[in-house]
């Protein structure tokens, strides 16, 4: 039993209680909305990616989360009717199937996309492309002497330049970006770049650009020559690490899921200028053989923080 000291205190208590109740009520009404998650009914091992994303969403989102697995037989009209019947008032799409279905929906529900290499201007969401700044951070951790990063972009990736430059600047790295019109010129640029690069101070970044990192032509030559010159190559694409690049960042799917749920919440709060965000992750993927070849020795603490190493035992 509470022992009230004075009527003033008693009054303060009742006012505080009333305010708390109001806040709690308003919060509950605000999160009572239904979030629909459209995702592909993918086979293993890709199903795990979507499960992790959904786990992140559920973890973050306060309202009800309803799942809509999609397959080739899913009809957009039926889906829309189902969303309406279920009272879905916000949508997160995962993967290309969900993104394509969402494009056909006519409603004005808040829409957030994920699990795609989205670029700015493609709505609101979290891209699969890792944040360049996090790559630069990892680069500095692994090889603090690197001062300059070179990369080649095609015209399609020009949007990346300001973001990357800003990130590099923040990490006190000089980022030199070259543009190539085709694969032949890309190749020629790489040749020249490799010829003049300083292996102690320079590193080569393989950006999220298909032309600049053509896997059948450019990547083998580039990796081979960089190996010979003992030049650091890091990549935005984790699969390049398996082929010989030093490191990359593996997407943190649960974190991405949580961020997608936050973005949906923000859209529901009618916030603006959200756009596409890079994937935030500290899941380092590293090629130990390349690291050993380059003379990079990982401390035990660094090794513990590595998410995956190649070549795998």
């Amino acid at each position: 039993m509470l022992n009230w000291k004075s009527p003033k205190e008693q009054c303060r208590y009742w006012i505080a209680s009333t305010l708390l109740w109001v806040v709690a009520f308003s919060a509950s009404t605000a999160t009572a909305s239904v979030l629909g998650v459209l995702y592909p009914d993918a086979p293993p091992p890709y199903r795990q990616v979507f499960s992790q994303l959904i786990d992140g969403i559920r973890d973050q989102y306060l309202g009800m989360v309803k799942l809509y697995p999609l397959d080739t037989s899913t009809d957009s009209t039926t889906l829309q009717a189902q969303l309406r019947n279920d009272g879905v008032d916000a949508i997160i799409t995962l993967g290309r199937s969900g993104y394509t279905q969402a494009e056909q929906l006519t409603s004005e529900r808040p829409l957030v996309s994920g699990a795609l290499p989205l670029i700015p201007g493609q709505g609101t969401g979290v891209s699969l492309i890792p944040d360049p700044e996090e790559l630069f951070v990892q680069l500095k951790r692994l090889s603090p002497n690197i001062q300059q990063v070179h990369t080649i972009l095609s015209e399609q990736s020009r949007w990346l330049e300001p973001i990357a430059q800003a990130a590099a600047t923040r990490q006190r790295i000089k980022l030199t970006i070259y543009y190539a019109s085709d694969i032949a010129s890309t190749l020629a640029l790489y040749k020249r770049l490799l010829t003049h690069a300083d292996r102690l101070r320079d590193a080569l970044w393989l950006p999220p650009d298909r032309q600049a990192t053509n896997e059948s032509v450019i990547l083998p030559i580039l990796l081979q020559e960089a190996w010979e010159k003992r030049l650091i190559i890091f990549a935005s694409k984790p699969s390049f690490v398996r082929r010989g690049a030093l490191f990359s960042l593996f997407p943190d799917n649960e974190r991405t899921g949580r961020r997608l749920a936050e973005l949906v919440g923000s859209l529901q709060q009618e916030e603006e200028n959200l756009g596409i965000e890079f994937s935030k992750s500290d899941k380092l993927v590293i090629n130990q053989r390349t690291a050993a070849h380059l003379g990079i020795k990982l401390t035990p603490a660094q090794l513990r923080s590595v998410y995956r190493t190649y070549p795998q035992p």
Partner: peptide, 16 residues
Amino acid sequence: ILEDDRETFTEFALSQ
């Protein structure tokens, strides 16, 4: 023929 790279899992690519 020079082909551009493909994602092994098409759900992670924006276009086919």
